[in-house]
Design a protein around this nucleic acid. Structure first.
Lengths: 248, 248
DNA sequence: CGTCAGTTTGAAGCGAATCAAGAACAGTGG
DNA sequence: CCACTGTTCTTGATTCGCTTCAAACTGACG
């Protein structure tokens, strides 16, 4: 079941927000869960203020929950000998969580230039009185659940899939995530990641990523151009990704 | 910093429990966080009732949060062509979470015979009034955090470590987890997993697990016997696992 | 025009999978 | 107690997927 958001539904409940323009990915994800009461909408707009801009390639300190408004963020782990494993990707509409109390040896980094907005007050307020903000509470709970689901997907990819399967599986995940927040146009979505970054996500070498991408292109499964990834053949892509097609 | 629990501390606050004997792994994990007030101790004992026994190799339906009292559980994902990836391992003292609302395509299975106890009432009660049960609330929050930390470790293992490194990394994790709940005796801990299961955890073939285990044995890093794993050389093991030794 | 990040291509080597068959072992029933 | 069964572990030979190394190519940008 697609979580595609009807434009009318979004704009109907959109109101002037202090920090961010309306009809953004983050709106889409929250409003797709249901209509916000006036109280919730007010609370939301009061607690999302002053977006922050981060440079591409800069590290990102997440001392409190942070919404990503635009750009790509990753959470990565670097081994003593320099090998790097990217654990999670965050795109517009995702929530960066505060892991400061745990020493996990991981860090957040901006893969592109990134705009974020503080969600600390919002998240505290909602968790203190979930019954007053039912839609927002659901939204936060979903964001957490999504995170775990993606970690699981990442384990399956790196653990049991072959190289071309890993790539297909990731492309499909990114397609779905962009689709959910209204970032897909004509089967194509933004793809600013370099092959080196893809390699660090999928646990492969950059050279091999290149070859597997070519394979997908030559077989007419995807097309890439100018920072975009276009999916041409969902059925083949799903087969490669070892995913039942109806799950797309 | 080790979470080793002083025996005196545990027994001082232990009281007759309805469902489970005292000084179990689950006690040790909770009591290591601090002393429970009488109110908390009562609430805990009232809400942990009637352990359930599960056969080895049986599937486990987790409709509500469940504590593992003994035995090994895994959460796994099976691909259409039969390949299996084990995502997480659960041992005594761990909490199995309810994922029923999400269709993640994963399932829980008993790797040995397993004893569990329902934690639904406990978890709901604590989350409704965390200020009344500070230690228990911390315990649940830690259990969640641990889960994520382990998923991360699993991604690093399968994504960026070589075969012998993966095995060492997993052994070290299992050692620490058993240590934390008082299950380590003389550097050895229970190890009932077959090489086939280890292969499904680490994303390797069973044959290769065998060879890597032999390597660790021949180099005097570990010793295995009768369902036990004994660590002989922590420094080497940590080196193999790509982990700083002080993090053990 | 040169520079630099990113992509592409080729050749060689290695790590792990696969296939296959035998050995050790635990459990079962005679 | 021992033959019988099935599971787990062990070992060897071969194959293949992916890495590594190295170099050339492309395109954006000052």
């Amino acid at each position: 079941m697609s979580l595609h958001v009807a434009d009318t539904q979004v704009s109907a409940k959109t109101r002037p927000w202090a920090g961010i323009a309306s009809n953004t990915p983050i709106h889409n994800r929250i409003f797709s869960l249901g209509n916000l009461s006036d109280r919730e909408a007010d609370f939301l707009s009061q607690n999302l203020q002053r977006p922050i801009l981060h440079e591409a390639a800069s590290e990102l300190t997440v001392a409190a929950p942070l919404f990503v408004l635009s750009g790509w963020v990753c959470r990565a782990c670097t081994l003593p000998d320099g090998r790097r494993q990217i654990l999670q990707l965050f795109i517009a509409g995702d929530l960066l969580s505060d892991h400061s109390r745990r020493k996990t040896g991981t860090s957040y980094a901006c893969l592109t230039s990134v705009k974020t907005i503080d969600a600390d007050a919002l998240s505290i307020g909602v968790s203190r009185a979930p019954e007053q903000f039912p839609v927002l509470a659901t939204a936060f709970s979903n964001l957490d659940g999504d995170t775990e689901e993606r970690l699981i997907g990442q384990i399956v990819r790196t653990g049991r899939l072959r190289a071309h399967e890993r790539l297909a599986h990731l492309i499909l995940e990114l397609y779905r995530r962009h689709q959910r927040c209204g970032q897909v146009a004509g089967n194509s979505f933004p793809m600013p990641l370099t092959q080196e970054v893809l390699a660090d996500i999928l646990g492969l070498s950059q050279v091999h990523i290149n070859r597997m991408l070519q394979q997908l292109r030559h077989e007419g499964v995807v097309r890439t151009a100018a920072g975009k990834m276009e999916i041409l053949d969902f059925a083949r892509l799903a087969t490669f990704a070892c995913v039942a097609e109806n799950e797309i």
